[in-house]
């Protein structure tokens, strides 16, 4: 019967395809991550992610931070005064917590639920500071799209798939010097 033969042929083809594809799927599971050394802080991470707010957030790597009093990731370029007033802050959502330590040092922490991943602070920190603020796909939020919507839009082609058991591409001091 023609139908049966065609079905057999199809199943054979599918079997062949499965063998090829299965071999290509042996490797570890992967997730999306962005390379902070490639990122140019274009703001698309905030706008392109399928999630609102974005699964990309700013992170702070404390050992790299200068604990600066005039944090250029925290303050507007010409702040009225160096305090937590909203008009002085770069972050549109007030997601950065500034805590005084010993003068003149301040500790900066991202309040992640408020961060929208706009990279304004990252830009300020990278341009004038140590670059300890940078963006990362946060995997407690990311739904691991088949094709990351930001990856398509990222002008720096900073997105890549990374092994799921090492899902972050962090900056570090050694890399920086």
């Amino acid at each position: 019967m023609l139908n049966g033969a065609m079905r057999g042929a199809f199943l054979f083809l599918l079997g062949a395809a499965t063998t090829v594809l299965f071999r290509r799927s042996q490797a570890k599971r992967t997730v999306w991550q962005l390379d902070p050394y490639k990122c140019v802080q274009c703001n698309r991470c905030a706008t392109e992610c399928v999630l609102k707010p974005s699964a990309v957030k700013c992170v702070q790597v404390y050992p790299m931070c200068g604990y600066c009093k005039l944090c250029t990731g925290y303050f507007e370029p010409e702040p009225v005064s160096l305090d937590t007033g909203a008009e002085n802050q770069l972050c549109p959502t007030g997601a950065i917590k500034r805590r005084a330590l010993e003068d003149p040092y301040y500790e900066y922490t991202i309040d992640e639920p408020r961060c929208i991943g706009c990279a304004k602070c990252v830009k300020g920190c990278v341009l004038f500071g140590n670059g300890s603020f940078f963006l990362q796909v946060r995997h407690d939020r990311c739904v691991n799209c088949d094709e990351c919507a930001i990856a398509i839009a990222c002008p720096a082609q900073a997105f890549q798939r990374v092994p799921a058991d090492k899902p972050y591409l962090m900056k570090d001091r050694e890399h920086q010097a």
Binding site: P36, Y37, K38, C39, V40, Y62, P63, M64, C65, G66, Y67, C68, L101, E102, Y105, E107, T109, C125, V126, L127, F128, G129, N130, G131, F134, K171, R173, H175, Q176, A177
Partner: peptide, 19 residues
């Protein structure tokens, strides 16, 4: 683009727990 270490981090008191 990724910045440089312009401000060496402070030397912390051993009691400071860095987050």
């Amino acid at each position: 683009a990724h910045g440089v270490e312009r401000f060496p981090p402070p030397e912390f008191d051993p009691g400071y727990k860095m987050p």
